[in-house]
Simulated assay, not measured.
Amino acid sequence: MATADLSRPVSRRTLLHGLGTAGVLGALAALTGCGVPAAYVQPGDRGAPDRSAADRTLTFANWPLYIDVDDDNPARRPTLDAFTRRTGIDVRYTEEINDNDEFFGKISPSLINHQETGRDLVVISDWMAARFVRLGWVQEMDRSKQPHVAAELDPQLRSPAFDEGRLHSVPWQSGITGIAYNRKKLGREIRSTNDLWADDLHGRITLLSGLDEAFALLMQGNGADVTRWTADDFDTMCEQVERQKRRGQIRRFTGNDYIKDLATGDVVACQAYSGDVIQLQADSADIEFVVPEEGAELWAESLLIPNLARHKSNAEALIDYYYEPEVAAELASWVNYVCPVPAARDVLASSKDKDSAALAEDPLIFPDDAMRSRLAIARDITSDEREDYAKRWDAIVGL
């Protein structure tokens, strides 16, 4: 069992997420035309001879700033180093994923042509993971080799619509898309998504530009059940945003640059990710994050093993290692997103380091029951829906 060093300061600022859908659609359309094989890969064609026993290595592709690092030597990653010492498995860790669509374009030619990607483990947002699962581009994991995943995975994340039973994916970190606001500048609380449309916020709010990132919270504000939303729910949401854009309520649509807008006071309220707000709160006690009364989206970015990965067992071992509560606690103390291992809370709570112990009480890392009751995992946009929905949303946003 790894011993967590919880004395390090928090050091993660998010670089999430992919913003568009046109790149994905274009890449897939190009690959499936002109004599190229159909995109879907049958279950029997996904695996390859596993070299794990003889070759104690593993290639792991992740986002930047999404793992613990050593203060004195940023090239060192303590939890990965501890895994290598324990297992003898050397992890080649790359921070090559900066955008879901971009990464899709990078590895999809190999997957569609039944070739190795050169990666044994990747982390992508669940809306993109849904596409990989539907296309048959990832392998089913052997849970008998992952007892900690089976025992410790947050029950609320266990069975998303795109991967029932989490057979092909395991959350790396989770998060909440809610509302951030400057309470001092606003002079009141925000409790509802509909508060964004109030007159005193005219021209002072931003929404996320990515369809997959934006739609769920806005639908929830209209009372939709996002676990089973419909075309009518989508139309209602789009009409609402179009109306608010015409009246000048929305300052602009953003990627992660909403962080700067909120920090500088250029906007007073915005759609936001929970982990970003934790970082903003370190610099300003005036910044608040709210899960609206109508609900907010709980999302995850998940670990997947691509087809034909040559070190599947090694990858499964690494995934299970990160579900040991002590290891999950060390990771959580750095990345500051919702920890998918609830038992890590007790590890942090018992820490002698005050900052680490305080994280155990932060509902944006370990949501309490009241907050959880308002969180939902949205049904993803299907391939049949995506082209029309993306076209309409991009026209609103101005992409």
Rank of each mutant, 00 (worst) to 15 (best):
D225R: 09
S274H: 05
T254C: 05
F215I: 05
R246K: 15
R243G: 07
L217M: 08
Q220A: 12
S284W: 14
T236M: 13
L218P: 01
G223D: 15
L280E: 13
N256W: 03
G248Y: 10
Y273L: 07
Q279V: 09
Y273R: 03
V226Q: 03
G275N: 07
K260T: 11
N256D: 02
M219A: 08
Q281W: 06
M237C: 15
T254N: 09
I287D: 02
D233S: 05
G265V: 08
A224P: 03
F234A: 15
D261H: 10
D266S: 11
V291P: 03
T236S: 13
R251A: 14
R251H: 15
V291M: 12
D235G: 11
T230E: 05
T264C: 02
G248R: 04
M237K: 03
V268N: 02
D286C: 09
V268D: 00
K260I: 04
Q281R: 14
L280R: 02
Y258V: 07
W229Y: 13
V268T: 15
Q281P: 07
A272S: 14
D266W: 01
T236K: 13
D283W: 07
G275V: 00
R246A: 09
D261L: 08
A272N: 04
Q244M: 15
V241I: 10
A216H: 12
M219I: 12
A231G: 11
Q240Y: 06
S274V: 06
I250L: 14
Y258I: 08
A231N: 12
K245M: 04
A216L: 13
T227K: 12
Y273S: 02
D232L: 10
V268F: 02
R243T: 14
Q281A: 06
Q271D: 12
D283K: 12
T254R: 10
I259A: 00
Q244T: 07
A285F: 10
